[in-house]
Simulated scan of single mutants.
Amino acid sequence: MKKIIKIVLVLFVTLTLGACGSSEEKDTNKPTKTEEKKEEKIYTIGETVTYTKNSKDLIHFTVDSVRNTDDRNEFADSQPEQVIIIHYSYENIANEDDIYFSSINFKVIDEGGNVCETYPASINTYPQTAPIGTKSEGEEAYGLKQQSSKIKLIVELDYSGTKATYELPIQ
């Protein structure tokens, strides 16, 4: 009886160690996290991001300019170091739902790494909803916490969290 228990125990240990050994081999063949990540493209002024789903182009988005403004709002709660206006355009190529881009889709980061807020400066172009086959453009004003010669703009292209990153010089 003791021999049978020893044989069963040896088989159990052998199978258990064998299973552990094979999983370690699989782990060494896995790509590292840096290999798994695709290199993200960084866009700049005038470059168009095309949002594609199921191999179908749906939306074009472009930042046309980023400029300084001296416009200050005496009633604003914040006193930013610098106020900029971002001018952008977008086109609904084939998205079934109307598209609309505004500050809700944007995250602006100044050269100090500060995430910045919208600012109530005067703008001239207000975005509109765009059904299939139409275009629109808009402007958004932001107050930067630190004087900057460029900004980083992250644009959320859809509700699933697809994003595009821009590095934009301030004109």
Rank of each mutant, 00 (worst) to 15 (best):
K53S: 14
I123K: 12
K38M: 00
K2M: 02
Y51V: 03
L168I: 13
G138M: 00
A164E: 08
H87G: 02
S103I: 02
P80I: 09
I109W: 02
G18M: 13
A94Q: 08
E137I: 07
K41W: 01
E167W: 01
R72N: 12
T32Y: 10
S23M: 04
P31E: 01
E24R: 14
Q147T: 12
H87S: 10
V66K: 09
G46Q: 11
V49C: 00
H87K: 06
D97C: 02
E167K: 08
D110F: 02
I86D: 05
K145A: 11
Q82T: 05
I132P: 01
T69W: 04
T28P: 02
E81W: 13
D27P: 00
T62V: 14
E137Q: 09
M1T: 03
Y126M: 06
T165H: 02
E140H: 02
G161C: 12
K56W: 09
D77Q: 10
D110G: 01
G161Q: 07
T162S: 12
S23T: 11
K26P: 01
S55F: 10
I86E: 11
V63W: 11
Q82R: 10
G113P: 06
D57L: 03
G113E: 11
E74F: 12
A19E: 12
F75A: 14
N68Y: 01
I170E: 05
E139D: 05
K26Q: 06
V10Y: 07
T48K: 14
T62R: 15
L153D: 06
H87N: 10
N73V: 07
Y142Q: 03
V115L: 15
T16A: 15
D64Q: 14
T52I: 15
N92D: 07
T34Y: 14
Y159T: 13
I109K: 01
A19R: 10
S148V: 06
Y126S: 08
A141G: 00
K53Q: 15
S103W: 09
K150M: 09
K163Y: 13
G21I: 11
T62Y: 10
N95A: 07
I4R: 12
P80W: 07
G46M: 13
N92E: 03
E96N: 08
I84K: 03
Q147P: 04
I154R: 06
G112C: 06
